[in-house]
């Protein structure tokens, strides 16, 4: 009977963990679709989901290739109520961009002349110890969109 109870308990724990993880992914997926994609326009996303649940104090990093001849938008979409810093560095560790602390969803648009391997870092601020708020988690999506620089230039001239 005890063995049966243990097995049942393990099964329930497994089911709960699976449900929790699927739920976490669903939340991030829906959040990215609803909040992230519209903010990325007119840039085209790369078709890959890069999001996760974050807590205050968490950090994440993506090393990726930015091709010469393209414009890019690196965008951080956050559900958290604390500041999220976006930093872009080159391979030698030089900081190329740091987001403004007041940006709710920090982003950086830039044009790439020659292909670069860059590091995108995000850091979620810690909550102040004196804060009465609770340390909630939330989904953060790191989105990278691109467009052809020359195509963008043509559109810009047409609009002017």
């Amino acid at each position: 009977m005890k063995l049966l109870n243990n097995q049942a308990l393990k099964f329930i724990v497994l089911i709960v963990f699976t449900a929790i993880s699927i739920n976490a992914f669903s939340q991030c997926k829906n959040f990215t679709k609803k909040e992230g994609f519209p903010a990325l326009a007119p840039f085209t996303h790369n078709g890959q989901l890069t999001s996760a649940k974050f807590f205050p104090g968490d950090e994440a990093e993506i090393e990726m290739t930015f091709n010469g001849g393209n414009d890019y938008r690196v965008l951080v979409c956050s559900q958290l109520q604390v500041e999220v810093e976006l930093k872009v560095l080159d391979k030698k560790g030089n900081v190329l961009h740091t987001s403004n602390p007041n940006d709710e969803n920090p982003h950086w648009d830039f044009r790439v002349k020659s292909t670069q391997q860059l590091i995108v870092q995000i850091k979620v601020a810690e909550m102040e110890e004196t804060s009465t708020k609770m340390a909630a988690d939330g989904c953060i999506s790191i989105l990278v969109g691109f467009r052809d620089s020359s195509h963008a230039e043509k559109l810009l001239k047409l609009n002017h």
């Binding site: 929790i20 993880s21 739920n23 996760a52 958290l80």
Partner: peptide, 23 residues
């Protein structure tokens, strides 16, 4: 990545998708 999210999710089952839900 999955394991990371799994571990973080143990106490965070029912998070909504907007700021109000988180607060």
């Amino acid at each position: 990545k999955y394991i990371y999210i799994l571990s973080l999710s143990t106490i965070v089952f029912a998070c909504g998708s907007d700021h109000n839900a988180n607060s």
